[in-house]
Write a protein that binds this DNA or RNA. Structure first.
Lengths: 338, 338
DNA sequence: TGTTGGCATGTGCACGGTCACAATTGTGAA
DNA sequence: TTCACAATTGTGACCGTGCACATGCCAACA
């Protein structure tokens, strides 16, 4: 049995309708699982669809419904650590029947942010997930008077449109761990100051130090990269006036470890190191890195759930329990040697 | 000056046309940079667009033109190394005026692959970039009789729709480096056998060993993860019948190094290790990892260029010079100790 | 028997652009 | 002045789908 009509173009619902001997609207109803359709009719239509290899045209759908079913993802993959969060978001969105369009920030300047947001808006996304939450991104969102809902993966909890991942608690756990081990001279290798989560982690560090009455040294502001951790390490290790360091992400911790090795330090005897994120590699650093784990899969799913609840109208955001990060103690931390 | 009409919905070209006192077609011409438009008219239209914050509706455009300007990206981010290639592809596509929709492979089974391809096809992508080139993916592409052009980031060169990155040469360079250092007992930690590039790297390894007349040991088939490298290392190091290893990617190399450390080996004195990819972290492993670098940014750009040339009609694919990977010698390799 | 109402299906238009073609205006040469 | 022709602009149909509304059908009930 050969297929009959589609000449050059893809078959439409009208083609299906004609061959099935029904109206195009009936076909549309089959597509959208309308309740009142006779089973026999439905079966007939589905059969024709199968024969014709029919696929609904997304553009037409979006046009007539006025909804694109697309979510924009703004990421800064280049600099930042865990790629798994991106995958988690995409999977969650896909599961909910949404499509994901990604825009990458090539650099961190305002211009690049605006360009990326423009790009997303131009494809009429219904919502935006910001995975590289910098202060500037939110400034840009406001300035461009973007009115689609947006959500950020990690945040301080200050903003409404954000998940309550308690970055501060994570940072405090890490800091507390070092203090409990007996360290009293602890540096913090922070992330870029204008990143919301970097700020939160730094605040957590400072708060814990203050509360535990440990004298605090000024944090070093980094850029998330292993390279920076390495360079900062070389600089810091000239004066060995500290015994432990808390890095704001695992990559910087790795770079710092590299610098320690080069300086001939014995890890963790001479230097304790804590990271943040628990990227899959962290367990295989040497020594295996003590770090703070967040469940990015859960995070991604919640993120999408939050966004979708925003999308589906004035439903008040049901804030789920805050996700408490977990300290994973491995071999990179030990009591200070005297 | 307040804006006049858009009631609840976004302004359309007809709204713009009305306010500018022209026809909707003229507005369309402005949008598409049609040559014959009086400058004054164009300026007037642009002004109204600005006032109205007008944005062209992508769905409508796609519908009437019959082209979605969207590229599908099939990736297996979870397992595989360099995220930079994804970013490179997205940037390149964005620059060319295309949008990118990503589908992740959650697992490697055929079902998952088909689901991901379905997802992409449902959004009427014009072409597909496969970033996790497994044999099965191409099987699925054929089986689903998908007729959009597709391209893969890395490949053996067997397929037409692929960039000629010479994976074999890279692998041979790595192997040769170890042989030149004096190693005669070399293991290869390969990637999954059904990954095209894993196979190519393995072939490169075997060819070089054969050609240099070094007795070959059977490669170990891994799964790209650091965890696997670690477990394989523990297993292999029970019998220390080898002095060097060539891992098919940097992550497995990292895991293997971890196992070496645990076994008390002195790196690189007791064991030389070469990786593949040169992820940004590799330079900060301890010792810094000798590995094979590919320029993923160039790769991403070429990949999109190839796909676009396919899209724009029967233009014969202009195969650019093959990209030759470069061996980066760092501290993880040394002559064998006797 | 007529009325009511739910189910199953059909009709026509709207969505916001683009395309083909027609109409109008402007310009230079005969 | 008039005509040919290019430059500029307008008109209406169309892309594929969903929505509002209308219609036909059949069963239940007064």
């Amino acid at each position: 049995m050969t297929i009959e009509l589609p000449k050059g173009r893809a078959p439409s619902i009208r083609d299906v309708a004609r061959l099935a001997g029904v109206s195009h609207q009936t076909v549309s109803r089959v597509l959208n699982d309308h309740p009142s359709i006779r089973d026999s009719t439905k079966a007939k239509v589905l059969q024709v669809m199968e024969d014709l290899q029919y696929r609904p045209n997304r553009a037409a759908r979006a046009l007539s419904r006025g909804r694109s079913r697309t979510i924009g993802l703004l990421s800064a993959e280049s600099a930042y650590g865990p790629a798994s969060s991106i995958a988690a978001i995409q999977d969650a969105a896909q599961e909910a029947g949404y499509y994901v369009n990604t825009a990458n920030l090539t650099s961190v300047d305002t211009e690049s942010i605006e360009a990326a947001l423009e790009h997303l808006m131009n494809q009429s996304v219904e919502g935006i997930v910001v995975i590289a939450p910098q202060v500037r991104v939110f400034d840009a969102l406001e300035q461009l008077s973007i009115d689609v809902p947006f959500v950020t993966l990690q945040s301080t909890g200050r903003l409404d449109n954000s998940l309550s991942v308690d970055q501060m608690t994570g940072a405090r756990q890490a800091t507390r761990h070092l203090i409990d081990l007996g360290h009293r001279s602890i540096y913090h290798l922070a992330g870029p100051q204008d990143w919301i989560e970097a700020e939160a982690r730094m605040r957590g560090f400072l708060d814990e130090m203050w509360e535990m009455d440990v004298p605090t040294m000024a944090p070093i502001l980094g850029d998330w990269t292993a390279d920076f951790g390495y360079r900062a390490g070389r600089e810091l290790l000239r004066r060995r006036d500290f015994t432990a360091i808390f890095a704001s992400n695992d990559l910087m911790a790795l770079g710092f470890m590299h610098a320690c090795r080069e300086a001939g330090l014995d890890l963790p005897r001479d230097m304790s190191i804590v990271g943040y994120d628990d990227i899959p590699e962290a367990a295989h650093f040497w020594p295996p890195l003590t770090t703070v784990r967040q469940d990015f899969a859960v995070l991604g799913r919640r993120c999408i759930a939050l966004l979708l609840s925003n999308l589906s109208g004035g439903v008040p955001i049901e804030r789920s329990d805050p996700i408490i990060p977990e300290l994973i103690v491995r071999g990179s931390t030990a009591p200070p040697a005297f």
